[in-house]
Simulated scan of single mutants.
Amino acid sequence: MHQGRNEAVRLMGEGAAKELKSRWLAAAQLGLVSSTFSTLIGQLAASQLGRDAAVDWMTVAAQWADFSWALVFFGLFGRWTSRLAPRTLFWLAIPWAVFTSATEWFGLVPLFPFFQPIFTLQQPYWIGFLVHLSSALIYPLFAWLRWPLRRAPPTSAVRFAKRWAAGALLVLATFGLVSVIDGLGWPLPTLSRDVAGDQRYIRHMVTHHEQGIELAKLGKQRAQDPHLRALAALMVASQQSENRIFDRWWRGWSSEPMALCSSEERLAMPGYLTSAQMADARNAADGEFDAVFIRLMSLHHAGAVQMADNQWHSSGDPRLRLMAHAIRHEQQGEIALMNNVTGIEAVRQATRNMLANNL
């Protein structure tokens, strides 16, 4: 009898170990699927939100994070989460996305263990939230993926998961179609209640960015501090990509070509540098260049922040306003980065920048 009990305990232990291994393998499989889905959605939806996915990847790569969070949810917490119904997993997607994106944005990336304040200062919180939400919305597939291929039982949970997978593929196809149409120069129609205001903002910000790109290229070439050179390169990439998005939206929303800003308009733009100020940057001695660059780019960024803040509070197209919010956040953050703000102070400033113009 004693030997029989030992055998039963051994079999139970082997069964538990096998179940644990199976759960972690399923969690890893789901992590691959969910992170791939969120990456594809991010790539396809970026331009609709005024983002350039390639530039966003210059500051952080989110795919590994989505994979890791799936391991945490179904591996580490799998004792409780692996038995949840797909519908329950759907309702948990938003709070889980809030938790994971906030954990990264406020702690893991800018502080310990990655110490990368550029992520929090340069990207507003809502970008990470949307990425993690698209990943978490794939979690209902776990009820299907936990079974070996073609051996899933025909339960209601598995049937729901299969339908959910079909829906996810349909969403991907829809975003792909919209992205292709947008790339051909036919963006979705404007939803603006102030078309003239949107056009004025686009024209002015394109012109403002053109000068910012010129100044940032000087920083990329001449800055003595490697950190400042890298930041200037990011400024060039981000503002060039934003101008491409502005140009595409203009061509899709207006039948008229974009008119150049007059000299009077340039003088009236906040933060638009004079010819003498640009000459100061070009003629600065090597030992003085970094200080001159930071001073002039901070002035220039402050003007762009003011313009973007006005657009964010306008009645313009929601996509243009969302893009303006991101510009307001990133350019305030870049001023902080030029001044080597790190640690808790970086998180504090990023939080304030996300909520308002603080310049």
Rank of each mutant, 00 (worst) to 15 (best):
R51H: 10
V131Y: 13
A230S: 03
L191Y: 10
H300A: 06
L121I: 06
V171Y: 05
V33P: 01
A346D: 15
L215V: 12
V98K: 09
D56W: 00
R352S: 14
R146W: 05
Q332G: 07
R193Q: 14
I118A: 00
M1I: 05
L20W: 13
A230T: 00
A216P: 00
L30N: 01
I335S: 08
A276G: 10
T174M: 11
I181H: 04
Q221T: 09
Y272C: 09
Q239Y: 13
S135D: 10
V55I: 07
G333N: 14
R146E: 07
L71M: 14
S38L: 06
A324Y: 03
R150N: 13
D309H: 06
D66P: 03
E345G: 15
E7G: 00
R203T: 09
A54S: 12
L121R: 06
L30W: 00
S47C: 10
H208Q: 15
A166W: 07
W312P: 01
L260Q: 13
A102G: 01
T36L: 11
H208K: 06
L184Y: 08
F142A: 05
R244A: 10
G4N: 14
I335P: 07
Q239R: 14
A152G: 00
S298E: 15
A276R: 13
T39V: 04
L215Q: 10
R321N: 15
A62P: 03
M307H: 05
P189D: 12
D56N: 09
Q29R: 14
A143R: 03
V347M: 12
A223S: 13
E104C: 13
G287K: 08
F115Q: 10
Q3F: 12
S275E: 13
V195R: 15
G252V: 02
H208N: 05
W147G: 06
A196N: 11
F129M: 04
V178K: 08
S263Y: 05
A346Y: 03
L299N: 13
Q122M: 03
A173H: 08
A61F: 05
L299G: 12
L296Y: 11
W147E: 07
S68I: 13
M235A: 08
V236Q: 00
M235T: 09
Y272E: 07
L108G: 01
